[in-house]
Amino acid sequence: MTRVNPLDVSFMTPDQRNVYNAISNGPRGGVRGPLAVWLHRPELAQTAQAFGAYCRYETLLSPKLSELAILTVARFWSSEYEWYAHKPIALEAGVAEATLEAIRCHSLPAFEHSDERAVHAFVSALQSLKHVPESLYRETVDVLGQGAVIDLVGLVGYYTLISMTLNTFEINPPSEHKRELE
């Protein structure tokens, strides 16, 4: 049960239909989760989905690092739907199961690679401290490059918006999915 019901395609306004078609025909392949909520406000949906497409498919971050960042945000917000949606993608991208389990349990993962360690530390600091200490910022820029760090901040912002939307409108995974973030 959610607080906002998905729109019936046959009753959408032309603006809603345009955004719906753009999302459905894009790499996401369908309108679900927060996109279904945003569709009630097509201007927001269009802007957010375009930003999301960039964050998901076009940043300088590898899929592995992007998914690590996304799940770090999901854990911070206890966003069950985001965890459910991205955990399989993260595993497929090469994030270790042990890393995800540590994040799920609010533990520090034992990273083998400096780029993974930097992404997790940066995202964790940004969310919990509301800023990134100078030494961590410099380390992350040294490991990823300035452009990738800029993309990382954008990705964290976008997936924070996603998590807030999911939590506010009580969008949860299918009922048969075992909750992992309680």
Score class of each variant (00 low, 15 high):
2 T>V: 07
2 T>G: 06
3 R>M: 11
6 P>G: 00
10 S>G: 00
15 D>P: 02
18 N>R: 14
20 Y>G: 08
22 A>N: 08
24 S>D: 11
25 N>Q: 13
28 R>P: 00
30 G>H: 07
30 G>M: 12
31 V>W: 01
33 G>H: 01
34 P>I: 01
34 P>D: 12
38 W>P: 09
40 H>E: 10
45 A>E: 04
45 A>K: 00
47 T>I: 06
52 G>C: 09
52 G>Y: 07
55 C>E: 10
58 E>Y: 02
58 E>C: 06
60 L>N: 15
62 S>P: 00
63 P>H: 07
64 K>W: 00
64 K>P: 03
64 K>V: 00
68 L>K: 02
71 L>G: 04
73 V>L: 03
75 R>D: 07
77 W>S: 01
78 S>C: 11
83 W>L: 03
85 A>R: 10
93 A>P: 03
95 V>F: 05
100 L>C: 10
100 L>D: 04
102 A>H: 07
111 F>V: 10
111 F>K: 04
112 E>V: 13
115 D>Y: 02
115 D>C: 12
116 E>A: 06
116 E>W: 03
120 H>L: 00
123 V>A: 04
126 L>S: 04
126 L>F: 12
129 L>V: 09
129 L>Y: 04
131 H>Q: 14
131 H>F: 10
133 P>D: 12
134 E>A: 14
139 E>F: 04
141 V>M: 06
143 V>Y: 13
143 V>D: 07
147 G>Y: 05
147 G>A: 11
152 L>D: 06
153 V>Q: 00
160 T>M: 00
162 I>S: 09
164 M>Q: 15
165 T>P: 02
167 N>Y: 05
167 N>F: 02
167 N>T: 03
169 F>T: 08
169 F>A: 01
170 E>Y: 11
171 I>E: 05
174 P>Q: 15
175 S>D: 12
176 E>C: 12
178 K>P: 07
181 L>V: 13
